[in-house]
Nucleic acid binder design. Structure first.
Length: 951
RNA sequence: GCAGGGGUACCCGAGUGGUCAAAGGGGCUGGGUUUAGGUCCCAGUGCGUAGUGCUUCGCAGGUUCAAAUCCUGCCCCCUGCACCA
């Protein structure tokens, strides 16, 4: 068959679309499977990372359809966001046009790959049909008290001209453009996600996310249990509230440290000799870039504020410092310093000559050390407590005792702190969902009434490059409105929503994408989202942000009665990186652009080597999917991607491997072509082929169900082809068998390479397309084990025969013309089957094996007694390093031995094949002892391991 | 520093007590069939050897009759978080 992937693939893509096979509807009679990929931001074209993501998802969607599931597999676009706005500014257009042209281009790339999406459910978050529901649900959030507008110091990116959420700041830099972030005080909209902190954290234990994702989320939420303690200030009514996770160390507190930004600092030192020192420290901290601050913080620095605090547990007076290592945004911005048991405090105390007191024992029953050389940060028994009743307590008991003592004194309580902050939702940008709020001079902030939704983004905005800020602000027909409450002139909110809001519920919208009266119908969501999305595939970069927001949102909609589930995603798969070679300097540990291949290192001048690095534009080591598809076809690219590595593993791009996979496509075609040309000529090997097929099908279903796509593809596209080739090599020529084999095999080819599978399916005479087919799973025949074991026996003989032949050649002067095979003598087979049946009954060979063998018939002949004894041992117990054969024989081998398969006959039946394969003219076979012992091989023979000699 | 994941033959990559000198693929080597060039098929690819042996799965120890696999320590790589109290 001539293979023209371009023609063939587009023909089948059209057939799928014409038949509407991928359109999913609720069907309670079938188990559902919701397969979802993280929807893309529509930049110009699909890149290889997308190809990997969707090829995994599509294979899984197609697999589950084959298994008879009702599969929901949608695609849409996360199309709000800054790149479109920036592109519009550059080109003088409107982000809406840019976005739609990008969507149609990436969509056609996806269609060319043959992904089996239900395109009726297409959505773009920047379309008003979608974002109006963002606004609707925002109102619901607001009604539930989960929306808050407050002044807040925010992370501001000057370049992007917008505020950033904490999650969007990496190393004090904007996650998008990399510019350093500055702090600004602004009125901002927040979603009170922290209401759900506990559930978001605790539920992680019950969901099947990869461990690293769970760890990142736990880390991000950052719950710590501890105590809030109020330190009174000597000569003042103010209190210093501190948060500590280690109330058990309270007796070791020898000073208190405030962050330099702490409001109490000024109050404490104002007008004293200490004031200037504090001001300098605060200035220094505020002025410094993040980079400098991290470097400087290795050196702990602080100033005395001139006053003392009173430790509430023992009324001890301790000095108050301001320290550069205390962070104002965590806890209360104040720390009780315990230099004996906190390394930072230890370093600080050393520097400023403050008292270091040991109040916990590092080892049980040891004496307190005289001079500490480091802080002991672990848990231990309390010592040196200046109040009775604490010494000897440790760990949680110690903490609890201190907390209750503090509670009694009304100067502290047990508490929980979170690192998670509320979700800063507002963005000062145009291309996002307008926040449906109105500012009225008399009524304040008023929500837009539901019946007035949607608040649409105006399309008549002109974008220019000089423009800065949000063009909505100067768009009068958008801004000027009436107050819904008092009817007077008012102004619309011009902030738009963070785009993570859009992606926080799109998976529910997909369940009911064309609903015109609500975000989604509860019945649809409860059906498709039962136990969450069954398979969610995407990049690890969304581990904290998107995946946490989406989890929060689902819990909020659940609590608003919109859906049943509280966790949106069942199985989450984070695909690995796609790498390609890049020039690399070992000394500088730096990768360079591909233009530098074979050149010297630009910075140190050494010769560059290569190493594999994440595909990226900046290194230029990307591969264009379009080019690969036009050269090899979508099926080859998909095969390469899936076979190259399991979904979660990283994978290296390789042109030669891609070409090898292309050749594999031709091999598959040749196999099917050959099968179609056979005539009716049944033979013994037919049973073997079918037995292999059944065994492979079982393994394949298991692998695919576990999303072990690499293993699945290995079986369907490689092992089954090898089986087929072996079948032909063994003289298999039966048309009926071949057709039955193809009937089962071709569906297994379909998930990874669906187009060629359709072509094959049609060739073997099916009128219906394979995309509609539900694959029956065959049970193994009772005889399969034996059939497979017999063929394996032949393969083993060939394998050891080949090894021995090369050795024999060295020892033989003459040309080798014959192989002599000596089958194990009767008495060894008796021993073997005796041992097998004893083994099945749980016989203890170590304990009773020796006496048993002595009772056997074979043992009676004194001349062979020693040999019998040896054979028995190697069957049952084995040597020092090898176990007895009883343990190593496979199930099928045991069956062959127990059933006394006539090995002589098996060899004779296959002697032509063996002769050809071993390159000899004749095969002579007999039971050892019944003819001349050629080469002394009789001794070696065992059941299923004949002695082999070449002459 | 903390957390998560890793280190397997020339390369990529399976493999979590014995059936393991270790799947599969790539590459390389040899043989066959063709040579209409998408070749295709077969074999080999740690050392040794007329077969059961030796060495190897980051390094060093240990448990076991038996370790790539379990335990301890160490080294290195990746990812995330980070004076988080």
């Amino acid at each position: 068959m001539a293979y023209d992937p371009q023609e063939l693939e587009s023909r089948w893509q059209k057939a799928w679309s014409d038949e509407g096979v991928f359109q999913a509807e609720i069907d309670e009679s079938k188990p559902k499977f919701y397969c979802l990929e993280m929807f893309p931001y529509p930049s110009g074209h699909m890149h290889m990372g997308h190809v990997r993501n969707y090829s995994i998802g599509d294979a899984m969607a197609r697999f589950h359809r084959l298994m008879g599931k009702n599969v929901l597999y949608p695609m849409g676009y996360d199309s709000f966001g800054m790149p479109a706005e920036n592109a519009a500014k550059k080109a003088g257009g409107h982000p809406n046009e840019v976005t739609h042209s990008n969507i149609s281009s990436i969509r056609s790339d996806q269609e060319r790959m043959g992904y089996s999406y239900d395109w009726r459910r297409f959505l773009a978050t920047s379309d008003v049909e979608y974002y109006r529901w963002n606004q609707e649900m925002f109102l619901t959030l607001n009604e539930k008290g989960l929306v808050e507008r407050r002044m807040a110091p925010v992370n501001w990116c000057v370049d992007c001209d917008t505020v950033l959420a904490n999650e969007q700041v990496k190393n004090n830099r904007c996650w998008r453009c990399g510019l350093e972030v500055v702090q600004r005080d602004m009125a901002q909209w927040f979603v009170r996600m922290t209401e759900y902190s506990d559930e978001l954290l605790d539920e992680l234990d019950n969901i099947t996310f990869p461990e690293n994702v769970k760890a990142m989320q736990r880390n991000w939420i950052g719950r710590s249990h501890g105590a809030h303690i109020d330190f009174a200030i000597d000569g003042s009514d103010s209190l210093i509230g501190v948060f500590t996770t280690r109330p058990d160390t309270i007796f070791g507190a020898t000073f208190v440290t405030l962050s330099p930004e702490h409001p109490l600092c000024e109050e404490l030192c104002l007008g004293t000799e200490w004031e200037q020192g504090w001001r300098d420290l605060r200035e220094e901290c505020a002025r410094m870039s993040e980079f400098e601050r991290i470097n400087m913080l290795k050196e702990k620095k602080g100033v005395f504020l001139g006053r003392n605090a009173i430790n509430p547990i023992n009324d001890e007076k301790i000095p108050i410092y301001a320290g550069n290592f205390v962070v104002s945004s965590y806890g209360t911005g104040a720390v009780m310093a315990v230099p004996g048991h906190d390394q930072r405090d230890f370093d600080f105390a050393k520097r400023y000559n403050l008292e270091i007191r040991q109040v916990l024992l590092e080892k049980e029953d040891s004496a307190p050390s005289q001079e500490l050389t480091h802080a002991f940060e672990g848990y231990g028994q309390m010592v040196n407590s200046s109040v009775q009743g604490f010494d000897g307590l440790s760990g949680d008991n110690a903490k609890d005792a201190v907390i209750s003592a503090l509670e009694e004194k009304k100067s502290g309580h047990g508490t929980v702190e979170y690192r998670l902050k509320d979700w800063l939702l507002s963005r000062q940008r145009f291309w996002g969902t307008p926040i449906p709020m109105i500012h009225c001079d008399s009524c304040g902030v008023v929500p837009v009434p539901r019946e007035d939704l949607p608040v649409e983004l105006p399309l008549d905005v002109v974008f220019t490059e000089e423009q800065s800020g949000n063009p909505l602000e100067s768009h009068d027909s958008f801004v000027l409105t009436k107050c819904p409450s008092c009817g007077k002139d008012a102004k619309r909110e011009t902030d738009t929503m963070d785009t993570f809001y859009d992606s926080s519920w799109y998976f529910m919208r997909f369940c009911d994408a064309n609903n015109e009266t609500s975000p989604f119908d509860r019945e649809a969501v409860d059906y498709w989202m039962g136990d969450g999305v069954d398979l969610y595939i995407g990049g690890i970069e969304h581990a904290v942000m998107h995946l946490l927001y989406a989890r929060f949102f689902t819990k909020f909609t659940r609590d608003s009665g919109m859906n049943e589930v509280g966790e949106p995603f069942g199985r989450l798969v984070c695909q690995g990186m796609l790498n390609a070679p890049a020039p690399y300097c070992v000394d500088c540990n730096t990768e360079y652009h591909v233009d530098n291949f074979d050149l010297d290192c630009p910075s140190c001048g050494k010769k560059l080597s290569t190493r594999s690095a994440k595909m990226s534009k900046s290194l230029g080591n990307t591969v264009s999917p379009e080019e690969m598809v036009s050269r090899f076809g979508a099926d080859t690219v998909r095969l390469f991607i899936l076979f190259g590595a399991n979904p979660e593993a990283g994978m290296d791009w390789s042109d030669s491997a891609l070409e090898a996979n292309h050749r594999q496509m031709f091999s598959l075609i040749d196999a099917v072509d050959a099968a179609l040309e056979l005539s009716d000529s049944p033979s013994d090997i037919d049973d073997w082929l079918m037995a292999r097929m059944r065994a492979n099908q079982k393994k394949w279903v298991e692998a695919m169900s576990e999303v072990s796509l690499r293993e699945g593809v290995m079986i369907s596209h490689f092992e089954m082809l090898s089986d087929w080739n072996w079948y032909l090599r063994r003289g298999g020529r039966d048309r009926v068998t071949a057709m039955r084999f193809l009937q089962e095999w071709i569906p297994m080819i379909a998930p990874a390479t669906p187009h060629i599978a359709e072509e094959f399916w049609k060739k073997i005479g099916h009128e219906e397309i394979i995309a509609k087919f539900v694959m029956p799973i065959l049970d193994a025949n009772p005889s399969d084990v034996r059939v497979l074991a017999l063929e394996n026996y032949i393969k083993e003989i060939l394998s050891s025969g080949r090894n021995l032949r090369t050795l024999a050649e060295r020892h033989s002067e003459a040309e080798i013309t014959k192989v002599v095979i000596q089958i194990s003598p009767e008495w060894k087979r008796d021993l073997a089957s005796e041992a097998i049946s004893l083994h099945q009954r749980g016989f203890d060979f170590k304990e009773k094996g020796q006496s048993h063998v002595k009772s056997l018939e074979a043992f009676k002949d004194e001349s062979t007694r020693g040999e019998v004894f040896q054979a028995w041992n190697s069957i049952t117990i084995g040597g020092k390093k090898t176990r007895g054969r009883i343990h190593t024989w496979l199930e099928g081998e045991r069956e062959l031995i127990s059933a006394r398969v006539n090995e002589v006959e098996v060899i004779k039946d296959n002697s032509d094949f063996i002769a050809t394969s071993l390159g000899v003219d004749t095969v002579e076979v007999f039971i050892a002892g019944e003819a001349e012992d050629v080469g002394g091989k009789a001794r070696i023979s065992f059941p299923l391991e004949p002695g082999i000699a070449f002459v």
